[in-house]
Design a protein around this nucleic acid. Structure first.
Length: 564
RNA sequence: UGGGCCGUCGACUAAUGGUAGGUCAAGUGCCUUUGGAGCACUUUGUCUAGGUUCGAAUCCUAGCGGCCCAGCCA
């Protein structure tokens, strides 16, 4: 039955939702949320979470909120919230509600007071260091704080004074009274509030105490009546605490479900490390086209559709593994192949003179814009006596199996003519500086009336008409498959690929590209997909290589141990 | 070493006690005015050992391996 089309594969989260729908757990309602902390830019890992949060809700006619988890004023900035909103939209999703954990600070405070009154929370005067020591270890239980049994009145008084700003940062915290001997460290009287005299990007100086993630997240979900709170695996150990607060407070029971975080080979998806790359100037910024940030891959030329297709294809599970970068690249090529107009561009130009072509003559050759899309039509490309071809497309001494131009060999110039190499002119260094050819006038457009075949078709631009361009070629930012695996005494940044960026400043592109708008995407025939960079100027367009085309010759050559 | 989670082709993921399938990668062939598009085909897998069962990737037990947790970060 191998030929039978497989049904769309489900995943364990969808199965849970389906089950909840079946049992009418939430009256058929599905509500999710995407809860980034506005302390950095979104990356491809967040794209996976976004696709899951929004995708699953959409699938069942549910809603998804965008909620900023802004409980730590020291790291958060408005600039980041704007960037995150733009990235979510760019990916193709619209949120239903837009909220901030800080919207709930008053409610959260009231709930903290309730827990104090119920004898479920206490103010602790221990220092951070002492709290750590009292927490015990993975194998040993913790010890109760000497302040654990203060009266509700005293706790309330102290907590109110914490809020009033009577105490310095770090002098006291509010803790949940749970179980210092719990095998789950998160349950050993977790901190609920800390004193932080810091200005918050939204609440300004209203507060000098801020709730911890654990005291904010579940309640925020509950306030928004989130039915399925989807997050990554490292929060598994927090779930009992998430549930504990909801239960003690008797509020709407959101359910936390964890899935595996995205890992991609040759790339690092840690906000902290990405920040370091930016701060140390290892990349040009958050939107450097080598960065896995959504800003970076957008500038690189990736499409939202490609990313969404990728996220759909990798699935959702709890297995922690690593997806091969080739998988992502496949989805980018697949999408770009359908939509990108083809053009001719020469990255490393080699001059070709067609000796028998009339001096001064120019012909407009018809070129197909996109063979995958006939409606894209055709365009005219100027052809003349002096052209540029790719240095790679000529070999004075062709190795076995090399089909491109070499002395005595005839090839097709795409949409042009058959040309035969008659000789080369070398420069003083002995390098081939100029290739001479003759053309067959009968082969105009690229076919010979006598039915003669050539083994190769190469691209070209007319020297007199080509536009100078800068082309930026990107390789993996890291040279290690798993960049987070660091050798003894080394740093992650030691795994950086020193050759991740190559700038070709003397590329020649066909004239139709002279005014290509920033952000437009093109396929340079035989080379790959390229996107116009915002750095482009009218006199000098700049292109980023999004991804190369698959190159079977490169593979063959590599296998032969070939040299270049 | 305590707790939590997870082990299916090289990678990712299905199969919900009943035919181990899909995608990527790799390989072979075809085709080609992109050597790169496209098409066809092929290879490789249930961590191990026991058990339950007519039947186990799936359930049970034990091992082994991986990831996460000791922030007043999220």
């Amino acid at each position: 039955m191998a030929a039978a089309p497989s049904p769309a594969p489900s995943n364990f989260i969808r199965d849970i939702i389906l089950e909840d729908l079946k049992t009418n757990k939430h009256n058929g309602r599905v509500q999710t949320r995407f809860p980034p902390e506005p302390n950095g830019h979104l990356h491809i890992g967040h794209a996976k979470a976004i696709c899951i949060d929004f995708g699953l809700a959409d699938e069942f006619g549910g809603d998804t909120n965008l909620r900023f988890d802004d409980t730590n004023p020291e790291k958060e900035e408005t600039e980041y919230v704007e960037s995150i909103k733009a990235d979510v939209n760019w990916l193709g999703f619209q949120w239903d509600g837009l909220f901030y954990a800080s919207d709930y600070f008053d409610q959260l405070y009231e709930w903290a007071v309730k827990l104090i009154k119920d004898g479920k929370a206490y103010v602790d005067d221990l220092t951070a260091e002492e709290i750590r020591k009292h927490r015990g270890t993975l194998t040993e239980p913790g010890k109760d704080s000497p302040y654990r049994n203060r009266s509700a009145e005293e706790n309330l008084n102290l907590f109110e004074r914490m809020r009033a700003g009577e105490f310095p940062d770090g002098s006291r915290v509010l803790r949940a009274k749970i179980d210092m001997a719990s095998p789950n460290l998160n349950m050993r009287d977790p901190v609920m509030y800390r004193i932080l005299h810091a200005e918050h990007h939204r609440t300004g100086n209203k507060w000098c105490i801020y709730p911890m993630y654990d005291f904010a997240h579940g309640q925020s979900d509950s306030i928004e009546r989130v039915t399925h709170s989807l997050c990554t695996l490292e929060f598994e150990d927090h779930r009992p605490l998430y549930n504990w607060f909801i239960q003690q407070l008797g509020i709407f029971p959101s359910r936390q479900i964890e899935f595996d975080r995205l890992n991609l080979t040759y790339t690092l998806l840690s906000k902290r490390k990405l920040l370091q790359l930016v701060q140390e100037g290892r990349v040009t910024g958050w939107d450097d086209p080598r960065m896995p940030t959504l800003g970076g891959i957008r500038r690189r030329g990736y499409t939202p559709e490609a990313i969404r297709n990728f996220c759909g294809a990798i699935g959702v599970s709890k297995t922690n593994g690593s997806i091969e970068l080739a998988m992502l690249e496949h989805f980018v090529r697949e999408d770009l192949n359908k939509r990108s107009p083809r053009v001719m561009a020469v990255l490393r130009p080699l001059k070709v003179v067609i000796d028998n072509y009339p001096e001064g003559q120019v012909e407009e050759m018809d070129a197909v814009n996109n063979p995958e899309d006939p409606s894209a039509g055709t365009r005219k490309v100027p052809f003349s006596r002096v052209l540029y071809i790719e240095q790679d497309d000529f070999r004075e001494d062709p190795p076995k199996g090399y089909f491109r131009l070499s002395p005595g060999r005839e090839v097709r110039l795409r949409y042009g003519y058959f040309v035969t190499c008659t000789g080369v002119v070398k420069n003083e260094k002995g390098e081939v500086g100029e290739v001479h050819c003759t053309y067959d006038p009968a082969s105009r457009g690229g076919n010979s009336p006598d039915g003669r075949k050539v083994k190769s078709t190469i691209h070209w631009v007319s020297a007199g008409h080509a536009v100078d361009a800068e082309v930026r070629i990107y390789e993996n930012l890291f040279s290690k498959e798993d960049p987070s695996k660091v050798d003894e005494g080394k740093d992650v940044l030691d795994n950086l690929n020193p050759n991740s960026l190559e700038v070709l400043s003397h590329a020649k592109v066909e004239p139709s590209l002279a005014n290509a708008a920033a952000g437009t995407r093109w396929q340079f025939e035989r080379l790959g997909y390229f996107c116009v960079d915002p750095d482009s100027r009218p006199d000098k367009p700049v292109f980023n290589r999004t991804v190369a085309l698959k190159d079977t010759w490169a593979k063959v050559e590599k296998k032969q141990g070939g040299t270049r």
